[in-house]
Design a protein around this nucleic acid. Structure first.
Lengths: 239, 239
DNA sequence: CTTCACAGGTCAACGGTGTTGTCATAAGGT
DNA sequence: ACCTTATGACAACACCGTTGACCTGTGAAG
């Protein structure tokens, strides 16, 4: 088989499908994201996507080499949307905090794409743009290059790691998700104080706390530490 | 269909499979972990596991209601191994630091199992034991209950999140891993300074930094913040 | 206009997956 | 030695991603 996928730019004949839809990389990614949003992460399969588009599933392989490629495209679109929704003000800790929270929220909105792409470097346009932007914020703030990279690395890893962790739950089939919620109520909240004194003493707090994400707290911690480091650097330079 | 799964304790007839293997929950979990380690996370399927065990795939449904149940069992075994290797000394920040690093190392040692299980609450024995232990460490250190739960939550989520993130790379097929490394060298390191000045300026540092894990730094950050919080609490109580 | 190469949509098939209803059989109490 | 029944085996179902071969309408060239 010769190369099946044709880059979007090189496409010349816009032939409609049997059902009259004109396919495009854009339309496919868009439809895939809609599918995920409307029917849950499990609803995304090549066959279902084909059906939703009004096209044979195998058509998609003219646009993406395999499902992984499609996921990366979705992930990059996700980065793009996050970036576009973000309005930096010039106050760097506030801007990064806002960006981090938006990345996290974006991951939760598209859990499957987030889980798949957290540990991947896509090298696509929006990802590159995001790297460039964040590095710019840090260098403008006064971080020297090696330090800027270090903070960037910590910031991005943290956002990705928590995004994946928290969205993994969302990506579970509904039944498993319900079961998981029950574990805290049914199992942990009922352990006797004799065998598990510490859990018994804190059960009430546990049930409440484990529902939410610890990302915002972790993010604040990171930014506070970065601010302190910057002050330290400035003092060392000024002295 | 009446209940198909029989709890391990209630099992009475140890009938061997056609190929002479005597099944048990333990043997199944062990074999599953071996499969994952040797042939990648994708290698774990009910059918392959059956083949590896020398049993019909459907036999496994006498031990686990569905694959998800099996995943939880694997996750719990991983927790158990980590916990058994840990020797607390009574110095709580040092102990938690040690435990965190062990959890992270455990994830890296069994990358494919870690990725699969990082985001699940198993409610099984080892997990419960781990929760009880860590909560005990914190409450003994003097954290009031709500605070202990907050720190526990942050600590555990962080270990799981970074464990999964960092092992995901390790778990990739060699070819994909090489390709990924190339993205930094081939794509990012070659962006022109005119269009991407910040990436161009820091490219050298980027390539070097993105190789390592940022978990140890993040862990130290968390523990330092917790120590500060405890001091604050003590002063408030003493005053 | 007509022609005609071929891009791009379609079809059918392959080998995989989890899961379940039913059946067979050997284990273990009597 | 018998009988119950726990537990393993089998076959089927509905799905999945992927690919090789085929067909057809598009759009450029003459």
């Amino acid at each position: 088989m010769s190369e099946r996928v044709v880059p979007a730019a090189a496409r010349q004949r816009r032939r409609p499908t049997r059902q009259g839809v004109v396919l495009s990389e854009e339309l496919i990614v868009e439809t895939a994201m809609r599918l995920i949003e409307e029917h849950g992460a499990d609803a995304l399969s090549v066959r279902r996507l084909g059906r939703a588009l009004g096209a044979d599933p195998s058509s998609l392989y003219r646009y993406f080499r395999h499902t992984d490629d499609l996921m990366l495209a979705i992930a990059d679109e996700l980065i793009g949307r996050t970036l576009r929704s973000w309005r930096p003000t010039g106050d760097w800790p506030a801007d990064l905090r806002d960006l981090g929270l938006r990345m996290h929220a974006g991951a939760l909105a598209h859990p499957r794409a987030a889980v798949l792409s957290a540990h991947r470097v896509t090298g696509r346009t929006y990802e590159i743009q995001a790297v460039e932007t964040v590095l710019g914020v840090l260098r403008n703030a006064g971080f020297p290059d090696p330090e800027a990279v270090r903070v960037y690395h910590a910031f991005v890893d943290q956002a990705l790691a928590y995004g994946a962790l928290d969205s993994a739950n969302t990506a579970l089939p509904q039944a498993a998700r319900d079961a998981e919620a029950d574990v805290w109520r049914a199992t942990y909240a009922r352990l006797p104080a004799t065998s598990h004194p510490n859990i018994a003493a804190t059960a009430r707090h546990l049930v409440a706390s484990m529902r939410g994400s610890s990302y915002p707290a972790a993010l604040d911690l990171l930014l506070t530490a970065a601010e302190a480091r910057l002050t330290q650097i400035r003092e060392a330079a000024g002295a």
